[in-house]
Design a protein around this nucleic acid. Structure first.
Lengths: 355, 355
DNA sequence: GAATTGTGCGCAATCGATTGCATTTAATGG
DNA sequence: CCATTAAATGCAATCGATTGCGCACAATTC
């Protein structure tokens, strides 16, 4: 309405009786500009509230100072915390962040990648959708020379840097914990998807059983989409088929809550008759009755790690692009839902194990 | 690395032996360009995979096709659902969305607004932070002629369009429900913040009590930050002081979960001895034991409503800017936590009441 | 057949910032 | 005091797309 016209370097130039070139150089601290002029320019800039036009800069320099994040959904504690970590780091470096959601939908993910490329982001950080199999859309970005970093849900086939947590270790520790508590017929809920995180969790589960001389019973491994309803159904299925079990380790917090509800409905006591452990440390795992043991995916450190890796990559660009892989140590949290041994009624949190 | 050079209209022009002007006009369906030429241009564009350079367009047109969203945090079902609604609508209109979080921090909110203005977004949609009092940062946007739309947490003092839910009605209905269930000493948890939503919820609570001839007891109205811990403390405080109560209606789901935990700890039965009702319909309210009655804030319709209002505003721009206020009807959800009367064990959901 | 109206397209400026290549001015040398 | 060099700035092109104006040529009118 009123002062809709933004100040430009030309306004500064006119004000001072010099040219825009000089103003530009002064603002960019060019060595061939006198200290006095720089001073004047900065003053004038402040006075008329000059802000560089980001589009002009982007057009001229070919760098947008925009980075894209692709995550399955923002509505998960884990992802939103990561985003927060990235955002803070990026803002400090004067970059803006575009958050996009794939909703675990392959088509949407493809569109999103293309949209980001068209938007000319300077780089993309991705956590893959559950249903993503083909990766051509990312190859396109790589060909374009757009830096790429994967986190959590990654694709091993692509030559890109990545940050993950040690899902194997976490699953191993949780399963081990269940065994040590005295549970013997431990069921496992997992996803049929071919994503690293689920496969690693399964591997950890198996390894723990084997290490303790327990048989891995295929009947006890149930595949589903790991939502709340899936958890209920999986438990119902076990009960209906009369398959005995005394604990469940789920690769997702959601399905373990479903399991809890179904068990309660059938009058089965947790943790006395059946122990329950989830994965993800969603906030609600603390609110259930009993509170659920779970795995914290150290989202904040992951966000920072991703951002740092990314900006390292940005700067090293045009030179060699060393592919980095960082694996963070998750935190296994033991709560009441796995306390068959009632020795220690206080929930305890595993200390951050050093690397 | 390889085809890093993006195709431009000049490439198309060269290919066809015409000028960039013609190409531009052909792509924009200018009436003075022949059908034949348009056809050729479109073909060529497809062939060399031409994508307009958004910065050049933005620079030239002064419109960025970017809109900013400011919300307290993305990690709340309510907000992320709204974002989703907005995003879908915006993408259909070929706009991109920048999501930013204020973390309920006034300073951060100010910075964010400025950052968005500097990024030259074409408009901003905001849900205010809890601690926002001054509104000068928004006035700046208004002066700049940047369309603004508020939702949920709004400021009445500013001449901008807004979408809210009927917090008063929802609070009234929930309190009424508690009364009808037979609860008489109904406590209320609220925030000391001067935000519309909290004040309206308080008003609804009082009105219901009055309508049913119940006294509004100041001792029963507790102010806090409404987090989980606050809920525990509020209950503890009531118990310690020996203030009798047989129900709690909280303006937040988080504090009602805290209340539930504290009551359980003291062996007080819910819903038999004390009824509990929250606000927000966070997913975890379904997972607690017993499941909690709460208010669904119809986030999806709100997102759509906000987006629609916003784009209407964008188009009507330069003309009159009628200020619109939309008030959506929330859904009151009755679950087990308020079922003093055990007549109906099945959780029932209030039908969407028509306006 | 000359004048008028349309149609299809090119020229060149523009958006705001950057930058290679002058050009001007000041400082230094002989 | 004039030449040489360094220091400080200006000129003009550029990034890619858009658009007012104008120029050809064709179609229409009387």
């Amino acid at each position: 309405m009123s002062k809709k016209d933004k100040a430009t370097i030309h306004d500064i130039a006119n004000k001072l009786g010099i040219t825009a070139s000089t103003v530009s150089r002064a603002l960019n601290n060019h060595p061939r500009i006198s200290a006095r002029t720089k001073e004047l320019v900065h003053e004038a800039a402040k006075e008329i509230n000059y802000k560089p036009n980001s589009f002009a800069v982007a057009l001229r320099n070919g760098r947008s100072r925009l980075i894209g994040i692709i995550i399955p959904t923002v509505n998960r504690n884990f992802f939103s915390s990561i985003v927060r970590g990235i955002e803070e780091y990026a803002n400090q470096h004067d970059y803006r962040v575009v958050i996009t959601q794939s909703y675990d939908n392959y088509e949407k993910e493809k569109q999103t990648v293309n949209a980001l490329i068209d938007a000319q982001v300077d780089g993309i950080m991705v956590s893959l959708g559950k249903n993503t199999t083909a990766l051509t859309h990312f190859k396109k970005a790589i060909e374009r020379g757009i830096p790429l970093v994967f986190f959590d849900r990654v694709a091993e086939e692509l030559p890109v840097s990545q940050v993950v947590i040690d899902d194997f270790q976490a699953a191993f520790q949780m399963t081990e914990h269940l065994i040590q508590q005295g549970y013997r017929r431990i069921a496992h809920f997992n996803s049929p998807m071919k994503i690293n995180i689920f496969q690693e969790r399964l591997r950890g589960y198996r390894q723990a059983l084997e290490n303790y001389g327990l048989k891995v019973d295929p009947e006890l491994i149930l595949y589903s989409n790991l939502q709340l309803e899936d958890g209920r159904e999986s438990v119902a299925s076990l009960l209906n088929q009369g398959i005995p079990f005394d604990a469940i380790f789920s690769a997702s917090d959601y399905s373990i809550v479903g399991a809890l509800q179904e068990l309660k409905k059938n009058g089965i006591k947790v943790p006395e008759a059946v122990g329950l452990a989830g994965f993800g440390n969603e906030p609600f795992t603390e609110f259930t009755d009993p509170p659920l043991s779970t795995v914290d995916q150290v989202s904040i450190p992951m966000g920072q790690s991703v951002a740092k890796m990314f900006f390292d990559l940005l700067e090293s660009e045009e030179k060699s692009l060393p592919i980095q892989k960082v694996m963070l140590r998750p935190k296994v949290i033991f709560r009441k839902s796995t306390q068959k041994i009632a020795s220690n009624p206080v929930a305890k949190i595993a200390p951050a194990t050093p690397f």
